[in-house]
Design a protein around this nucleic acid. Structure first.
Lengths: 315, 315
DNA sequence: CTGAAAGCGCTAACAT
DNA sequence: ATGTTAGCGCTTTCAG
């Protein structure tokens, strides 16, 4: 009756609605869920990303959900890639209608298979694999990373060090590929490059920078970190070693997290529209949930933000 | 049967559990909720705080919930204090068993009244008012703020500026009171002090610092910002104006957010154990939910962290 | 167009 | 100690 059925007289409808309002009546969503077999809950999953990324992700999902009856439940999972089966059980135990998967879960094909089998719909944020599955928000990490490297090469840098992201995130490899294309296009040889492992944390950026500084031979003039947290870690260590940025060393990040704008000098980085990506993926998920066919993946635009942490090399 | 009832033979119990596992059976939490009148969901509410605060808050709640059947749903509300009635309706519409209220909602007495009337239990993070209501995690903002001010006064600062927090947060007044006690104890007069409004955002810290620098008369030698984001905003503006920190100007924050450790120089601030506070409040809420009487409020320890943004004034 | 009845999957109370 | 039954609040189906 309250669900706007077609063949009810307007007068009656109004009357019922008025009374409902007067009594402060709210339909019991649990009972409704029992019969419709829907929980009206969607989950958001991720694996220890940085605070500003998490917050943007959540804001995006909630923004899309604001006028829906759906609620968002948060499911951070420690180690998606190491234990995909456990991850799936974790998802299933929450009795969700659907789930939004952030990296690296969005690329965990074993999880997608089981989600399909269980009939749980999903949205995926920035997957690198099989973008046709689920409702996907795409970002061209390779192209973005290439732009970063091209920017440094255009400034004249010829000895460069890369601080790699968490290898379980497919985006790390995609970004490396972008750097590699730029290096190849400018004939930068292996001997002028150095690659240090990292895991997207501030501490791993610090450690990588220490290793870079302790290497024999001429120091690189630019550092390409695969995210902002590691870039800031590298900057901290470089400064403690007496290097000025960007005078002695240029540094680039990736993500445009809050810290990139707050640090001095402000960090040259790539903006990922995480809020929009989360909103779009949720929108697609809602379509899937209402029985519509899978929406086409949406490619989101990135943006190279040149700030004060990069300059031409000295000398 | 699966609920570990007391008078079932162990052999049978084991057998049933084995079959349940084999069939991959999971009880329908929705149906269970319909009869027990519980949704097994608790909400977490807050009003646009900084990312690192949000993330710690969520981590704390989830940590306590990890082995429970409860799920956490996120309810950020734009303007708790301006529209307490809407805020309550917002809470109620989610069909929650309980809710964890972060500031400033944790001090919204009108909301607590309506929550009581609706029989929705609640945990409260860092309330300043009526700490006996609900499951409370307390922090002594006044004592902590006083320690910050005492630290600056001990260094020899005698002209100080305060950047105030959002006035709708009761913590702002509590922190101001702490500063005031230290100033009074050291006979710092009104004419040596200046108070600029802010709202806990980076931008408001920048704006406040600009106003401070444009005032006639001798410049203060120390800035007390009521949170870290505003402190960082103030530092940014001070540096752009050619002041060195802490050489020309000491700056203090409040919260020990991520940025406090990442910025150079590292920020002198107060650590609030947000994670623990969230965990404790959730623990108390769970007790309330299981029918136990209201647990006593838990006072959490703060810690003054003296880092590199404070030093004795020049000259 | 409107009322009555069945039943979603589970738990609680009750009868063996 | 175990099996049976009613019914949570809603939607859907089927008669009126």
């Amino acid at each position: 009756m309250l669900n706007d059925e077609p063949f009810v007289k307007d007068a009656l409808r109004e009357k019922v609605k008025a009374v409902a309002k007067a009594l402060n009546y709210q339909p019991n969503i649990t009972a409704k869920g029992l019969i419709t077999r829907r929980s009206f809950m969607i989950g958001l999953t991720y694996e220890r990303p940085s605070p500003s990324y998490v917050v943007e992700l959540q804001r995006g999902v909630l923004e899309r959900l604001a006028d829906e009856r759906y609620r968002m439940i948060i499911l951070p999972f420690r180690d998606v890639c190491a234990r995909p089966d456990d991850f799936f059980e974790f998802l299933r135990s929450a009795a969700l209608d659907g789930v939004v998967l952030a990296p690296p879960g969005s690329d965990e094909l074993a999880v997608l298979d089981r989600l399909d089998a269980a009939g749980i719909h999903y949205g995926r944020i920035a997957p690198q694999l099989e973008p046709g599955r689920g409702a996907c928000s795409l970002l061209d990490d390779t192209a973005a990373a290439r732009e970063v490297a091209e920017h440094l090469l255009a400034l004249g840098h010829r000895r460069l060090a890369v601080i790699l992201g968490d290898p379980t995130h497919r985006a790390s490899a995609a970004r490396s590929e972008g750097y590699a294309r730029a290096f190849a296009a400018h004939d930068i040889g292996e001997d002028a490059l150095c690659f240090e492992p990292g895991d997207f944390t501030f501490a791993s950026g610090e450690a990588a920078m220490r290793r870079i500084l302790s290497r024999p031979g001429p120091r690189p003039t630019a550092i390409l970190a695969q995210n902002d947290d590691m870039a800031v870690g590298a900057m901290t260590v470089a400064r403690e070693a007496g290097l000025s940025i960007p005078g002695d060393l240029s540094v680039t990040g990736f993500d445009d997290s809050d810290i990139a704008r707050l640090i001095m000098p402000k960090l040259t980085t790539v903006r990922q529209p995480v809020f929009d990506m989360a909103m779009t993926a949720t929108d697609g998920l809602l379509k899937l949930l209402s029985g519509e066919p899978a929406p086409p993946p949406v490619l989101h635009a990135h943006e190279l933000l040149v700030r004060q942490s990069t300059a031409a090399p000295a000398g």
